[in-house]
Structures are given as structure tokens and as C-alpha cells.
Computed example of a mutant assay.
Amino acid sequence: MAGGILRCSGPRALPPRLHGGVVVIGNFDGVHRGHQSVLARALEIAATHGCLAIVLTFEPHPRSVFRPDVPLFRLTPAPMKARLLEAMGFDAVVEQPFTRDFAALSPEAFVTEILVRGLGAAHVVTGFDFHYGKNRGGTPETLAEAGAVHGFDVSLVAQFSDEGGDVVSSSRVRNLLAQGDVAEAAGLLGYRYTVEGVVSEGKRLGRTLGFPTANMALPDETALAHGIYGVRFRRADGTLHDGVASFGRRPTVDEEGRPLLETFVFDLDDALYGETCAVSFFGFLRGEEKFDGLEALVSQMKQDEAEARALLSGVRPLSEIDLRIAFSG
């Protein structure tokens, strides 16, 4: 759903017309406020010099390559990350395939092959602790030295902390989402946590109960707390609708099933099967429960709907990114 931003699989896919820009480097999983401080610096430099702003990131996440046996709850898979970067104003995102061979590149080869020949970087922006190349042998100091040799400038951005003085990190966001605290997570992200997926056809039980749902299977590694949330639902055409969503195993009707995100979209009765849609989480209403029959379930669902409508009636954008992701149609 990233329309205006160009996504390239590696530097070789970046058109020559996009060379000579400001390149900002990082994994940026979550594109949280700490990441945004680095990204915003790149945008400022690009605006000052009248050049393009390019993000260099890595796919899959390096942790998935080095520790494939440990599931990684990715906050922003590549398509969602691109949407967020587009909302910030970047022109392109280069998704460098991350393999063990790539990780074995020497720091010098990373600079010459990726930054110089591949991207034609005029200016490189990174976090203050950026390391690159084999065994993380490249440092901010060696990057600055390489820039002096190859003709690009280097800017390092200091560590970002929240209002309480704590460092904003992807791990903090993951922990909050695992507790269902989507409101606190939004404070660290600077926007409402959002997922994307293809709407699939389910058993249509919700429709028979008067609560038809748009069902989306999220990645198995998604560690969002099971429960009921007040959400905003974006269709593939960009239209927005409020709703109430359940994420979990549906213990009343299908306790053995895989976790599923089921969204009852308010005031919409269109068939959504096959659409790639997005769900933004605004508030946690309650945990997942098993009810004594469908009548009790329907009664609770009516309460959930009323609570979600009340919650969503007063929400406001947290930032320009939030405005574009969860508020603008």
C-alpha cells in the first residue's frame, strides 16, 4: 500500500536518477520516535541541499538470519515500513537483501559497493552507534574517514530518549504490545500501531450473530496480546472506518484455531475478501474470554461495540505520520 515511495530490492535496483541523495541507514523496525529522530535529520539535510532522501534498510531483519531459531516479532514488515517512510516524506527505500554473505562484506567493501557505487551517496546519516561490515568492524569514525576519501559527508544522530528520560527502542514497544498496552506503545511509536493483511473468508459465524467481521491472519510471530481493541480500519481504496477487533483464538467457538484478527467494521457491509487492508489499534478494551454460549458472547460484543465507539469518538492524531496512517482517508 506504499504508493508514492519507490521500493528497491538492493542498491542495483535504484535508478541512476536517484543517485546523489542523502542516504540514511538502519533496520528501523517500528519506525518509532527514536528512529524518527535519525530519519528526520536526513530529511532536513535533503531539504537544505535540494536533493533526494533515501532509506537503506535490510530484509529480512538481521536477527532472523543470525538467530533463525528465535521467533522475531517484527513491528513493521517491509510493506508497512515503506508506508511509514512514505508518510515521513522519503523518496525511496532500498531493501538490501541481508544474507550471511552480505554480512561478511568488509567495512571497506560495504562503503564502496553499497554506498558509493550502488547508491551514489552524497551524504550519509546514521545513529551515533552505527556499525557495519564483517564482525561490525566499521564504526562511525571509519565511516567519516571513508566519506572524506570517497566524497560524501557523514552525520551522526545522538540517542533519543522519551519524556521520562528512557531510551525509545523496538524492544520496549514489543513488550508493551505483548501486554496489550497499545496506547503506551503509540506514545513511543509516535503513531498508532498498525498491521496490514489480506481479508480472508471465514466461517461467517459473526455475520449470523449480527457482527460480520473482516478476518486477517497476522504473521505467526505477532506477539500482540490476545484481546479486544478499539481500532480504525483502512480499506485498499484508502477509506477509513472505525471498528472493534478481536485478536486471538476465539475460545468460545474455536479454541484450537490459530490466532486471527477479526474486525467488526462499523457501518460497512461490503464484501472485503481479497483486499489488503490495514488495522490501527487505539485502545485495549478487555482480555480474551470464553463465554457460556453464543447469547452471552453476543451480549458482550454489543458492550464492546459501544465502548469502542466511545473511545474512538474523541481520538486525535499524535503526529503527521499518525494523521496519514490512521486519520486521512
Results as ranks from 00 to 15, higher is better:
K290T: 02
V298I: 11
G147H: 13
E59Y: 10
H150Q: 02
V182F: 03
A183K: 14
V231E: 05
P97S: 05
T99R: 09
V182Y: 00
P62K: 14
F28W: 10
S170G: 04
N215S: 07
V94W: 06
H226E: 14
T208D: 05
I45L: 15
V31E: 12
R74H: 00
V93R: 01
T126S: 10
V265M: 02
E145H: 13
G287I: 02
K134V: 01
L209W: 07
F327R: 09
H131T: 12
P97N: 03
A271M: 10
T139H: 09
L84G: 08
R204D: 09
F247M: 04
K203I: 07
E86W: 13
G3I: 11
R207C: 06
L119C: 05
R83I: 13
Q159E: 15
H19D: 09
L115P: 04
V173G: 05
L105Y: 09
H123G: 02
G165C: 10
C8M: 04
L311H: 13
K203E: 14
R192S: 02
A310R: 15
P97T: 01
L218W: 08
R286T: 01
G127H: 04
V70E: 14
A104T: 13
A109V: 07
A306E: 12
F128D: 03
D270R: 12
E201I: 01
V298G: 01
P71T: 07
